[in-house]
Amino acid sequence: MSLEPATVRRIAKLARIRVEDDEIAPLQTQLNAMLDYVAQLGGVDITGVEPLSGGAQMAMRLREDTMCDGAIAEQILANAPDRAGEFFAVPKVIE
């Protein structure tokens, strides 16, 4: 399987990374090399094998659904590139 330039553009769009025209060809080469490399997994017999999603050998831990932290708006906003009062500010979304 080999990625076409249009697919590279689509992946970049999904990943929210702006890609200039002259970056497409080298990205296509590099991404295809990675896909060629991982293609060897196709040779593994995975019949009846469950997927392993986590690193921990344990069931997910649950906690009480109660507030345990909060009222730290200033700390949360301290690194914001732009803010308006107690809110993160972004470019206008709705015209």
Binding site: V38, L41, V44, I46, V49, E50, P51, L52, S53
Partner: peptide, 14 residues
């Protein structure tokens, strides 16, 4: 084809 298969192979490695 990719992610799910890789997770299964991960289980085989475990």
């Amino acid at each position: 084809a990719y992610y799910l298969r890789a997770q299964k192979v991960r289980n085989l490695i475990l």
